[in-house]
Design a protein around this nucleic acid. Sequence first.
DNA 1: CGCCAGGCTTCTA
DNA 2: TAGAAGCATGGC
Length: 281
Amino acid sequence: MDYRAVHMRGEDAVLEGVRHFSLSEILGCGQCFRWNPVGENSYRGTVEGKTRTVTQQGDTLIFHGAALEEVESLWLHYFDLPRDYGAVKALLGRDPVTARAIAYAPGMRVLRQPPWEALCSFILSSNNNIVRIRGIVDRLCRCFGEDTGAGYAFPTPERLAALDLDELEPLRCGYRAAYLLDAARRVASGALELEPLYTLPLPEARRRLTEIKGVGPKVAECVLLYGFSRTECVPVDVWIRRALDHLYPQGIPGVLAPLAGLAQQYLFHYVRNCPEALRAG
DNA sequence: CGCCAGGCTTCTA
DNA sequence: TAGAAGCATGGC
């Protein structure tokens, strides 16, 4: 458990004793697309229809305007604060390469994102860059998500499934619009159930996801890791491909396997932001 | 103008 | 069954 206590301070919920936690590392590492910086150490975003500004001050997190119950039922889970990253680092740190990546961003964590949002986000991510992905996801929510007053919820599968292809034109997401519709229609119709993907054996979970048009091996792996917390899953994009070729020519060490997806997140952030990362090793 | 971006589908040999 | 071409869009 990587927090100590949560209590109210005026209108805000305050989470104290947070460890292994950096908002900027977590929200700026390409695993999520709906958080925007709003000043020093503050970010504003929407999860499960709740729009909040979150501020980190050392080992304290402030959820502005949030109730205690919301932090306990939503945000602790979203930031995966029940997980002991001390133990995560103890395991992953047994490998020197991963140890260096962890040292580069010790506050990194893998979020537990809503599965449907993760599925859509990473369908939109294919052959695309992060800045543009963020723009497309933002337009998706503004166009078709519920207006909560403070922000826009992520649109439901049912809402998207009822649309025609040409109605997605304002998203300017190119050929991915058809993929998004296919995913929405499979989920809305019940042809693809998301809940079993938490526990199904990974080969079967992968098979089901890759039946969706526009979902190949990499996107499926992202959805399982970021949407279903399947920490064994390792999305391999061009960056991770380069990192594995340079740093793990023999493959990822077996001891890391249960948390290989978390190792991947440290590595991804490391090689994308640190020019020296790919040289020694 | 070409190249690239957290790839995938489709065509071809 | 492996490998290349084509794909919307936008920043550089």
